[in-house]
Design a protein around this nucleic acid. Structure first.
Lengths: 155, 155
DNA sequence: CATTTCGTTCATTTTTCACTGAACACACTA
DNA sequence: TAGTGTGTTCAGTGAAAAATGAACGAAATG
């Protein structure tokens, strides 16, 4: 195996690996592989290259990049003299990745708070236990916000 | 609607709500509902009560409680004079909940580190970008560990 | 204008995974 | 010992999500 082939295989493994990790985080596997491709390559990659390179339909690429764009994890860019869309990792990709998780924790916290409010004063037991539960999500939220801040400072 | 009925409904809504939240975190919905039941009730609940109360098969309860036990989120306890298994929220439930997420982030970080190691020295671009990526998971890991510590201190 | 190239959409297929429920092992009980 | 209650296992089911690919509209090209 030539050195070039070897590197290509390492790249491939990395992309697949991130695909699996993404799946574990509730993202479609292809979205993870798209992100991994962009991270690894470090420069704009065309729509067609993504479809061919990952061996998936253009429809799949379309929906994956839409998801990643919405979350501001990747961005669509142009290339002079090429009609194709190109993509690259967004500026604050990792920060936004964390932010998404933080938002979810915040939402869970609010959800529980909503139940607590509805609860009659008499229900002291459930009240205090749900409070602990809500606090749990609040702590996670704060930790993630802090993590995002750290990522931001690191730049 | 009587006050008792009203409270029962709030309890029900809470349990369903947590089921959905759990789903969003990659847990089976029933597991979330089991946990919510134990949190709300605040005392040991029997295997049969869980199955009847949630309206699901005993097989589902069995696998859900196994999952939650493995992660030390709930624990199985006995009740004198009753052959049934009882369950209650584990001591460090929330801490262990966070710990599970931290472990996943740690694993992702190690995974990427594995790829970095395989990468030839020549590949400076991918090397530095993967490093940033690995660092991202490392920051999350640290933030979650910190959150766990906070939960611990709060006791 | 006709043709080609794009990316999106959406009906359909595929896959995945929670959940079911029957069969089972085990332990009490009468 | 037969009978009952209890939890686990696992093959099968069903529903939700992911992925496909054909059809389509838009835009560039000749």
């Amino acid at each position: 195996m030539t050195k070039t082939e070897e590197i290509a295989q390492i790249r491939e493994e990395f992309i697949e690996k991130i695909g699996v990790i993404a799946q574990g985080e509730g993202l479609p596997r292809i979205a993870g592989r798209v992100l991994a491709t962009l991270v690894y390559d470090g420069q704009r990659v065309s729509f067609g290259e993504l479809a061919n390179g990952l061996g998936v339909s253009r429809g799949s690429i379309s929906s994956s990049v839409r998801l990643l764009e919405e979350r501001q994890i990747i961005k669509r860019v142009a290339k002079a003299g090429d009609r194709q869309d190109y993509f690259e990792v967004a500026e604050d990709a990792f920060i936004n990745l964390i932010e998404t998780s933080a938002v979810r924790a915040r939402r869970a916290c609010k959800d529980i708070a909503g139940t607590i409010e509805k609860l009659p004063q008499s229900e002291t037991g459930p009240h205090s236990r749900l409070k602990t539960y809500a606090n749990f999500y609040d702590v996670i939220d704060a930790a993630l916000v802090d993590a995002a801040k750290q990522m931001r400072d690191r730049k």
